[in-house]
Amino acid sequence: MIIERAYRGSVETQFADVLYFVRELHRQSGGVDIALRGPAAGYAVDTEFEPAIRIAGRVLDSLPDPRHSLRQLLDDGVGVWVEEPDLAVLGPSARDRLVPGVHVVPAHEPASRWPDYERVWFF
């Protein structure tokens, strides 16, 4: 699965973000791998940010946390790759703050593996 779009409307989706969907596909299909590209490369970088917003004076803190979801995927055995140029855009320390278990690969390297997979999906 190639994941390029990072934001999918946190308030609308709440717990069911794209990584939640990936986890369910992994469970039902017997296994998936994901490559993070573009803005979604930020999912692979550890941060202290806590997803929450204030709406009309009320704090909504039940928003999805992609780093938590990514850790669950890794624990489930999902292979996770992030393309190096997209990681580099996030700053010089991004590589040092990778979520453990995420692999950094050169640009477009995951595409060379597509023939090894039954299907390739883009999100």
Rank of each mutant, 00 (worst) to 15 (best):
Y20W: 13
W121T: 15
G31W: 05
G42K: 00
V59L: 10
R5G: 09
F122W: 13
P106M: 05
A16W: 10
A40Y: 05
R23N: 10
E48M: 11
A44I: 03
I3S: 04
P66R: 01
E24M: 14
E83R: 02
E84V: 10
D76G: 04
G77C: 02
Q28V: 11
L36K: 00
V99Y: 03
V32D: 00
A16Q: 15
V89R: 11
E118T: 13
V11A: 07
R5Q: 14
R8V: 12
F49N: 13
V11L: 15
V104Q: 02
R119G: 07
P85E: 03
P85M: 06
E83S: 03
P110F: 01
S29P: 07
V89F: 06
F15V: 15
M1K: 06
V105I: 10
R119M: 14
G9Y: 04
V45A: 01
R54M: 15
E24Q: 13
R8W: 10
V102F: 07
A56N: 13
R54Y: 08
Q28K: 12
I55C: 03
V45M: 05
Y20K: 10
D86T: 08
F21G: 12
D46L: 11
V32T: 09
E24I: 12
I3H: 04
L74Y: 00
A56W: 08
G42M: 06
A88E: 14
G79R: 11
D46F: 07
V120G: 05
V102H: 00
I3Q: 00
F123A: 12
V99C: 04
G57V: 05
L70C: 03
S10E: 12
A35F: 05
P39W: 07
R71N: 01
G30H: 08
A6M: 06
